[in-house]
Amino acid sequence: MSDHAAHVPGLAHHFVNMEQQKEAGTIGMWLFLLTEIMFFGGLFLAYTIYRAKYPDGFLQGSHLLSVPLGGLNTVVLIVSSLTMAMAVYYSQLGERKKLLGFLALTLILGSVFLVVKYFEYAEKFQHHLFPAHWMYNPAADHPPTQYHGQVQVFLWIYFMMTGLHALHMIIGIGLLLVIMFMAHKGKFSKQYNSPVELFGLYWHFVDIVWIFLFPLLYLTGYHVGGGH
């Protein structure tokens, strides 16, 4: 039995066949994403409670975020999701060159997202808007408002949600490099490509989180004439 299994590239010894291994991988990945839903879910709960509690602070807080930059990152992530989906498509067809090309595009777009995010964060630190108590001083650069405490609450939610999202992007880029290395080595074929597919699921999930973060954080106060 085991020597029979040894002939199939990519099949681990404790699985009976490729189908079982693929099924296990898929279910495992989806269950992992389930934990991710709950992980971010706790923060979405905090967002809901505090937004209801401090509507004014959230309006003012969202004015501190740049809608053009947030919108740009939204588009970048959506395009990267498309390139990732196409990478999966070409891995299923077993076309190594195109697979590598689309993985590289995804990698570039993911990096662009992080660079934009870096500039957004840096701007906040410059203006004393990081909510840690020894650093937070909105009056330094902005006309004082009556909602500094509430804006601080908005800002920690912003930093924690986008920070965790960015952390997921960084991990994703690390994994993407591994996948590209494997693709480069010719590990994937029409028969064996589940690492690409499973990574794709992760990447799309991170995209979905951003799809919610963008309107909830950036667009909240847009209608009262905020966004720069």
């Binding site: 999701s81 990732m84 989906a85 794709g200 799309h204 799809i211 309107p215 909830l216 909240t220």
Partner: peptide
Amino acid sequence: NIIVALTVACIKATAVVLIFM
């Protein structure tokens, strides 16, 4: 405002889940 924003986000997320994923 929030209802429209969340509805749009949900439609986008559903499309990603159903097709991309």
